[in-house]
Simulated assay, not measured.
Amino acid sequence: MFFPMFIGGLIGYQLGRFPGLLIGAVAGVVLAQYLRNRLRAKLTDLQSTFIEPMFSVMGSLCKADGVVTRDEIQVAESFFTRFRLSEQQRAMAKAAFNRGKSADFDLDQEVARFRRISGGQPLLLQLFLQVQVSAVSADGAVHPQEHAMLVRVARGLGLSELQVEQLEAMLRGAHSGGQAGSTRASTSQQLADAYKVLGVDPAINDADLKKAYRKLMSENHPDKLAGRGMPESMRELAEEKTREITHAYDIVTEARKSAS
């Protein structure tokens, strides 16, 4: 508040000495408040614009295996809190989710709509896909019909099937009860998933494995993503992703230690 007042006062003083200083200071405060309100309104409108495609696609995906489970509904509702939705936005999200479950819902059109309003920003596209995978894997598994639709959504966003598989592997790791830093023995599936999360071949050497892990952590660090425009309401999703990346790295390094 002081800085706009100072600048406005300085300009006013140059134009009208002391009276100009007072008028300029007041004008600076009013302008700063106006710009803050405009920015706040713009961010609210942007979030509301994302709600429709986000939750309608979620509803369609949850219905892919023929039934929407209570777990899937609870996960969908948990995003209301995580995204800090207002009561009006929650009502909008519920209506969108139900619309997505309808037989005449056009999934491809809605995905294309999100890609358009997001400006094709990779960060927002990846977070959108992460939300969808989280919703359909609420019961601890992604069914074949759900996977096929997730791949369809990913391709509509301009992403790959590999990115779907990496996110599915992350969610399996989360549902298995593993936590970052865990040293308990890994099953063959957990180890395979860990390599998939890290996006590396099991034959990779230790040095290149560490480089790949550090690169992945750097690309997905919440602070770096925030600097690139990630909404604060999505920070928790980014933090979850980095935890699962670290958990995958721990599984691989522990398995290698045990085998040596």
Rank of each mutant, 00 (worst) to 15 (best):
M1Q: 08
P4N: 12
P4W: 08
F6T: 09
I7M: 15
G8I: 10
G12K: 12
Q14L: 08
F18A: 06
P19T: 00
G24W: 07
V26N: 02
A27N: 07
G28V: 02
V30C: 01
R38T: 00
R40S: 05
T44A: 01
Q47W: 02
T49P: 00
F55G: 11
L61I: 07
V67H: 03
V68R: 11
V68N: 08
E72S: 03
I73K: 03
V75S: 13
E77M: 13
F80W: 15
L85S: 12
S86D: 10
S86L: 15
E87C: 00
A91W: 02
A91C: 03
A95M: 07
N98G: 00
R99E: 15
R99C: 07
G100S: 02
K101S: 05
K101T: 05
S102N: 09
A103H: 04
L107Q: 06
Q109W: 03
V111D: 10
R113D: 13
R113M: 05
R115C: 01
G119H: 02
L124D: 08
L124T: 05
L129Q: 03
Q130N: 06
Q132L: 07
Q132S: 08
Q132Y: 11
A135G: 11
A138L: 03
A138G: 06
V142W: 03
V142P: 09
H143T: 10
H143D: 09
P144D: 07
H147F: 01
V151R: 01
V153T: 12
G156A: 04
G158V: 10
S160A: 02
E161N: 03
E161P: 03
E165H: 05
E165V: 01
Q166G: 06
E168G: 01
G173I: 07
S176C: 05
A180W: 11
T183Y: 04
Q189D: 14
Q189F: 06
L191D: 06
D193M: 04
A194Q: 12
V197M: 11
G199N: 11
G199V: 11
V200C: 13
D201A: 05
D201W: 11
I204Y: 14
I204W: 15
A207E: 15
D208S: 13
D208Q: 15
K211L: 13
K211H: 12
Y213C: 05
Y213S: 05
R214D: 15
R214E: 15
L216M: 11
D223E: 12
D223H: 01
K224C: 00
K224P: 00
L225V: 07
G227N: 09
G229V: 00
G229I: 01
M230P: 10
M230D: 10
E239T: 10
E239C: 01
E240Y: 06
H247Q: 10
H247G: 02
Y249L: 02
Y249R: 01
I251Q: 15
V252K: 14
V252T: 09
T253Y: 14
R256D: 11
K257T: 04
S258H: 04
